[in-house]
Each structure stands twice: as structure tokens, then as C-alpha cells.
């Protein structure tokens, strides 16, 4: 059993003048959900194509499920993938499209109908693909990725074009698969979604990996914000003086004081307020979101 779902070293792809992926190096353990984030054009799809043997790397090495990415036939039967938008034969029905792929992979047709139901296309499986809405096409793409009952699922922007319901369904689906031991590598621009499901993250910027590791580790690098609110607004100015006296940069918003410190400082603040005779109505801590962290890490210079 390989320990890693995906492992790449110095993976590089150059298109003419354009370096799409530059010396990407990261490891993703088996059995986790790993988010793959980065601004448009940062090289996510290119990386995924290299992992699937669709394009050959200009340099570097990689393994998927313990097998060299130069021999995709050794691992792809255990991998399900959807790459950048669903692509199917417009003149065939959704069901026939899945059967084409089932034929190729030697999978039984019985999975086709259960997957159509699973992705919410149970009653439209017989319609031609060209008559599908954007979200329905996307759902068919997800069904196709699930066809092999994969050990590793690679999804490139699976929620693109889905309605809020669809997005939630995909989130549940990924959680369910992960609970059953499937490893999931998923790229998305909806960071709040990824934050909820991803234990691991790989972050790209201009083709380079700028973070790889546990999501919590990334978010933990950023200071959280602790909010305190006095019971009586008249005490606000005195409370501001006290917190400033402790040496913090603060902001005042909606009658609360925002202090960029972790939760442990709550006790210190509470004691200081108490000693000054001020009762706090609330002390709360806000984690920085993945989105805020993303902006901070990926913004130009």
C-alpha cells in the first residue's frame, strides 16, 4: 500500500514562453481531502493534466497511488477524474455517454444508472447531453468521475455552474466518499467550501507552490481576531485605553474592540477589564478564513 495519494517533485510544464507550472513539489497523504487552490492561470489544471498522463511534464517527477506518472496505465483504473469542465458527446444521452466510458474501463452498466440517480440526473439520463443545462453537464461529469469507484478522485472545479443546492450536494458527496476512505484532490475557487472539507491544501501562485500542508496549519499562521464588548457602552473608551495599554493595535467596530490576538489572550483581557471594574458582555475569537488568507498570500508582491 502506498502511503501517498499524490507526490510530485519539481514538476514543471513549459508551453513555449509560458511556464504554466514551475518546480511544483508536494505530497498528499492517502485518505484525505486535499484542496487545490490558486488564482486563474496559476497552473492547477495543468498540474492535474500531468497527474493524469494527458500532458507530459517538461521536467520533474511524480507518483499517483505510488505509481510513476509516466505510466498512467498502472494507476488510472483506480482514479476518477473530472478535468476543467465536463466534455461529452452532444448527440448521445447522458446515460449513453457514461456507458461509453463504462465500456472503455470495463465497468458494469449497473453503476451507470445508480450514479445518474446519485448526481440528481435520474430522470434526465435519457436526454441528449447537448440539451443539458450547465449544472446538469457538471453533474454528469461528476458521475463519470465516480464510475470506477475510485480510490483517488481528482476534481477540477466540480462546483462550477452548480446552484447552492448542487454545491452543498457535492460537499456532502465528497465528505461521504472521504469517510469511506476515498482520497480526494479537488480544485475550486469557492474557498469557503474548500475550507469546510479540506484537511490538506496545496496553494499555487503563478505556477509555484506557495503552501502545502494541513489547512489548520495555514490558517493558524495567521493571527485570529479576538473581539471584546463591554456590557455598558459608556465603558468603551476606558476599555480601549486599557487594551492599548497592553500594547495592542486595535480597531473599534459596532461597539466592540477587535484585537489581533489568539483566543488565549481572552483571559488576560478579561482580567484587565475586571480589575478596572468593567464587565464584559462577550469575548469571542474569529479564525481568519481561507479566503482572507488566500488574498493575503496570493496578492501581487
Amino acid at each position: 500500500m502506498p502511503e501517498l495519494a499524490i507526490s510530485v517533485r519539481d514538476l514543471t510544464k513549459v508551453y513555449g514562453e509560458q511556464t504554466a507550472v514551475s518546480h511544483a513539489t508536494f505530497d498528499i497523504p492517502l485518505g484525505t481531502v486535499c484542496g487545490f487552490v490558486g488564482p486563474n492561470g496559476s497552473g492547477k489544471t495543468t498540474t492535474i493534466r500531468m497527474l493524469l498522463g494527458l500532458i507530459s511534464p517538461t521536467g520533474g517527477t511524480g507518483t499517483v497511488l505510488g505509481e510513476d506518472i509516466r505510466s498512467p496505465e498502472k494507476y488510472l483504473s483506480r482514479v476518477g477524474a473530472m478535468i476543467e469542465g465536463p466534455a461529452f458527446y452532444p448527440m448521445l444521452s447522458g446515460r449513453e455517454n457514461l456507458k461509453v466510458l463504462a465500456d472503455l474501463g470495463g465497468f458494469s452498466y449497473s453503476r451507470v444508472d445508480s450514479l445518474l440517480i446519485k448526481v440528481g440526473l435520474g430522470d434526465r439520463g435519457g436526454s441528449k447531453f447537448k440539451t443539458y443545462s450547465l449544472g446538469m453537464k457538471q453533474r454528469l461529469g461528476i458521475a463519470a468521475a465516480l464510475l470506477p469507484d475510485p480510490q483517488l478522485l481528482i476534481l477540477d472545479e466540480p462546483t462550477n455552474g452548480l446552484d447552492p443546492n448542487g454545491i452543498q450536494e457535492i460537499r456532502e458527496l465528497i465528505k461521504e466518499l472521504a469517510d469511506n476512505g476515498t482520497s480526494v484532490f479537488v480544485s475550486s475557487h469557492i474557498l469557503s467550501e474548500l475550507e469546510m472539507i479540506s484537511e490538506y491544501l496545496v496553494m499555487l501562485r503563478k505556477g509555484k507552490v506557495i503552501f502545502t500542508g494541513r489547512t489548520q496549519e495555514l490558517l493558524g499562521r495567521q493571527n485570529s481576531i479576538t473581539l471584546i464588548k463591554p456590557e455598558y457602552q459608556v465603558d468603551l473608551n476606558r476599555l480601549v485605553e486599557i487594551t492599548k495599554g497592553l500594547g495592542y493595535e486595535i480597531r473599534i467596530e459596532n461597539g466592540s474592540i477587535q484585537i489581533p490576538v489568539n483566543a488565549e489572550f481572552g483571559a488576560i483581557l478579561n482580567r484587565a477589564a475586571f480589575e478596572a471594574g468593567i464587565t464584559l458582555m462577550s469575548i469571542s475569537t474569529q479564525q481568519p478564513t481561507l479566503e482572507e488568507t488566500f488574498f493575503e498570500m496570493t496578492e501581487e508582491n
Binding site: R49, L52, G53, L54, P72, E73, L76, V79, A81, I83, G85, A87, F88, Y89, P90, L101, L104, G105, A144, L147, P148
Partner: peptide
């Protein structure tokens, strides 16, 4: 040629990498 214009070749190659 439609495998290229529809983009379906990538699906085929994932299911049959050879």
C-alpha cells in the same frame, strides 16, 4: 477529430491510458 473538438479525448484517455 470530434474527440479533440468536443474535448472528449481526455475522458477516453483517463479510462484507457494506452
Amino acid at each position: 477529430s470530434n474527440e479533440y473538438s468536443y474535448g472528449t479525448l481526455r475522458n477516453l484517455l483517463v479510462r484507457q491510458p494506452s
